[in-house]
Design a protein around this nucleic acid. Structure first.
Lengths: 346, 346
DNA sequence: CAGCTTTGATAAAACGGTTTCTCACACAGC
DNA sequence: GCTGTGTGAGAAACCGTTTTATCAAAGCTG
């Protein structure tokens, strides 16, 4: 099969016996003409396998059907699901996504933003890995719509973040519902906004007797925190709400090594639903899912609206988290909705 | 700051007092003119902040400075580093990357390939997660250069894969060098080409007394395999080469639970260098890194060559793996080169 | 049947660049 | 002084679409 010359609308018009203008209008369902003519052009185009040149089209219209996804988290745990959601929301509309990792590098960020502008993207989605940090790029005064996802944006921007407080509340309430009396919170560094948000919710639910341990976001810290708690005087906790899944995994491992039964003696809940960690924990970890993919979908929808010129009210939108119950809490009354078990290749 | 109208080359020409043609030639370092004129145009362009419209440029030239990255592994462990490498190799050349996840879905794949063609990408990189599986898309007869990475391509294609045999050989030789006498191999399903490649190398090095256990690619299988080995009669292994890091982590955990010292009694090596698993294992896991990022870089370089019309010989290129020594083997004589500790956010 | 409106289709002008061709001019050679 | 030659610059064509303006023919109206 010869690599055929690409068919242009000119060819379609010639074969269909009409002018280029008519062909264009027929294919785009615009303008006026006999239904018969329109149909003939369409069939000719289909028969010839005509596909319009997106560059030429973008030049005349004001749309390139292209958006830029700028991310800090190349290509980490947070941006990944977001990307998947964005792509999912846009593929139906024929919109393609430029992926640009900027790695906390302002210069690199500028390069990518410039490249995006040159390539006339219809919008930019800026995605991060912390909701209390800005990306090292200036996207204001850009004449291109911008949506911020899981990162801090300017005051008057459209920003999508997770509702950490609500997620944490659900998790802790679940532990309390299970009858746990002494629930502690082992979490990350207090410098993170999500840490304080989750902690606030935790204290709200637990009330007096709240106990929070801050440390690094690591399995090792989970071990260490358990050691602290169990080596201390007095009654041990019977419920542990962890700031993320890595800490939770460390906690569960440490408890097992001490002969403490999870979920028999202690219920443990994590945060993030990082499948690879949560599903491999023994027993599998109950955890809070931030619905990052849905966040991506929503970002895609919003940027599309903006690209089409529709107005979207600015402000911060918190998207709800969802508690995902596995086996680390016991008594799984709540439906599991195990959405997507880890598909682990080699 | 008003969102200024975009500066066109027309504006540059007018301000510089030359024709559009001259301006274009000045900026692209083509054509003939006084060095003085050229410089004046360039300075005018810089002063005005002129940036050429990539769409318009792509229409006349035959380059869109855009490539498509088609991946099966949305957005998993293998494609991620590959993407990073690709992007790194291309950003300097002003080439942007369309990321398209196709999820083993032929229809979705076709949609994305069509979208790429419409958008006139200069090349396509097809990346997978298994070197013995094809992507569910037909990229032959495409009139656009294609490079296959970490996936099986057509016979006459340009394909980049990891050299599993060499990597496995290095790992096992390292165990033997350390004085390990009874090295076993716990690995994934035999249906994977990489499993047989690694096994072949293992048997080559170990010779008589080789023992291979196949199972799923999971931590659980690591536990199970250790149980089988240690519950059996006769002397226990003193070296274990694992088919991936998850299995290795299961093995190390299982050994610790049995009171077997790693690396004192047994040396363990994994495969993949999946930081989040390998670095969190206690002790941190020695493992084989497949250099996926370098594979991505090479793919980027190749696709660039092809896009520029240069010929590149077809065939399968195996890129070497690198043994990364951490603490699960003992006696770390070999330099560690711990390239990039896990940067774990919240 | 003259005058007006609607209809179907087209020619031509964008879009924002690059590239090919043409041309005026200065300069050297005879 | 006339011709050839290189040089700097610009006019115009082109890339492949969309869109606007135009127009002939047909259909109505009174």
């Amino acid at each position: 099969m010869a690599k055929a010359e690409r068919i242009r609308i000119y060819d379609v018009a010639r074969v269909a016996g009409v002018s280029v203008a008519t062909a264009s209008k027929a294919l785009n369902d615009t303008g006026r003409m006999t239904e018969q003519t329109r149909e003939r052009v369409k069939q000719t185009a289909a028969a010839l396998g005509f596909r319009p040149n997106a560059m030429a089209r973008a030049l005349t219209q004001q749309r390139s059907f292209t958006i830029g996804l700028l991310t800090n988290d190349t290509y980490g745990r947070f941006t990944l699901p977001v990307m998947a959601g964005v792509a999912e929301a846009l593929v139906d509309q024929g919109v393609s996504v430029f992926l640009c990792g900027i790695e906390d590098d302002a210069a690199l960020g500028q390069i990518h933003v410039d490249a995006m502008r040159d390539k006339q993207v219809d919008g930019i989605i800026a995605a991060g890995k912390r909701i209390d940090r800005r990306l090292p790029v200036d996207l204001s005064n850009l004449a291109i719509p911008v949506v911020y996802v899981f990162t801090e944006g300017p005051e008057d921007a459209i920003t999508l973040v997770s509702d950490d407080e609500q997620g944490a509340r659900e998790a802790v309430e679940w532990l309390v519902q299970l009858g746990r009396q002494r629930v502690v919170h082992i979490t990350g560094p207090a410098s993170f906004a999500s840490v304080t948000a989750r902690e606030t919710a935790y204290r709200d639910v637990v009330g007096a007797g709240a106990q929070v341990l801050n440390g690094p976001w690591s399995e090792a810290w989970g071990h260490e925190a358990v050691a602290k708690l169990w080596d201390a005087e007095g009654p041990h906790p019977d419920g542990i709400f962890c700031g993320n899944d890595q800490i939770a995994r460390g906690v569960v491992d440490a408890l097992r090594e001490r002969g403490v039964d999870v979920p028999g003696d202690v219920s443990v809940v994590g945060f993030d639903n990082w499948e690879i960690v949560a599903a491999a924990t023994r027993p599998p970890l109950s955890t809070v899912d931030m619905n990052l993919k849905e966040m991506g979908r929503e970002a895609g929808r919003l940027i599309l609206q903006l690209a089409e010129g529709k107005a979207v009210p600015a402000g911060i939108r918190k998207l709800p988290c969802k508690l995902l119950v596995r086996q680390s809490c016991g008594s799984a009354l709540r439906a599991s909705h195990s959405n997507g078990e880890a598909r682990l290749g080699i």
